[in-house]
């Protein structure tokens, strides 16, 4: 036990040296903190400095737009692969329900993937997503907690109208689905195009209490949220 402790400390120290490639085992747990919002398949990616899945105040990439509007990870995964990233796709094997958690591991051994990003779409929203944008992975072994905000991709009007399936395609209006089965119909549209078309902090859902009309298909008692909406617990161990 003593020997491995010393070995671990030595490794941790060497990881602090800037020129050595890091050798790290990462465990990442994502928790949905909301009362009534589901997350689509989660993408957890370790990558180099300068790589981003999204950035606040910047326009969404086509890949991010596809994720934020329809939950598709295909484009972002291709981007991560092209950037030589280390990633885990869909660890929850589907939707992450309100208050549920999912855990995945990444081994960045032999890479220079020392930054971490996490994204998933929020349902039911038009283009809302949870995001952790490129945080430097601590080199010291330990457990680190990050609280995530809800972002608006800025790519689709928050009309809050259900458009099952079809609404998930980039550029197609509407919310692709409501896993909780608790939305309404017949809304007239809660909002037009975003004023801010860059990625920005989501202003939240409006909703209403009219299940067959009103402006929104969302329920104001169920589909609102306050930040933070997700928790990421990162455990770093230096093998």
């Amino acid at each position: 036990m003593k020997t491995s402790r010393i070995a671990a400390s030595a490794l941790a120290m060497s990881a602090l040296l800037p020129l050595t490639a890091s050798a790290q085992d990462l465990s990442v747990t994502v928790t949905n903190l909301t009362h009534g919002i589901y997350f689509t398949p989660v993408l957890v990616a370790a990558h180099e400095d300068g790589t981003h899945l999204f950035q606040q105040g910047q326009a969404a990439s086509a890949s991010l737009q596809a994720m934020a509007e329809g939950g598709s990870l295909a484009g972002l995964v291709t981007d991560v692969i092209n950037a030589n990233g280390t990633y885990s796709e869909n660890p929850a094997m589907g939707m992450l329900a309100p208050t549920a958690s999912t855990t995945t591991t990444l081994n960045t051994d032999g890479t220079s993937n020392t930054y971490l990003s996490v994204v998933a779409m929020m349902l039911p929203t038009n283009d809302g997503f949870i995001g952790l944008d490129s945080i430097a992975i601590p080199t010291e072994a330990g457990t680190y907690t990050f609280l995530l905000n809800a972002y608006d991709a800025g790519t689709e009007a928050n009309d809050e109208l259900l458009n099952p399936g079809a609404g998930g395609a980039p550029g197609v209006a509407g919310i692709p689905g409501a896993p909780g089965g608790d939305t309404g119909t017949g809304g007239t549209g809660a909002a037009g195009a975003d004023s801010n078309t860059m990625v920005h902090i989501h202003r939240g859902a409006l909703g209403d209490t009219n299940a067959t009309g009103g402006t929104s298909d969302l329920d104001s008692r169920i589909h609102r949220w306050l930040n933070p909406v997700a928790k990421v617990v990162l455990t770093v161990s230096n093998p």
């Binding site: 909301t34 309100p98 208050t99 933070p228």
Partner: peptide, 8 residues
């Protein structure tokens, strides 16, 4: 237990 979504 979850985070609160605020009051309507």
């Amino acid at each position: 237990v979850s985070m609160h979504s605020g009051v309507v």
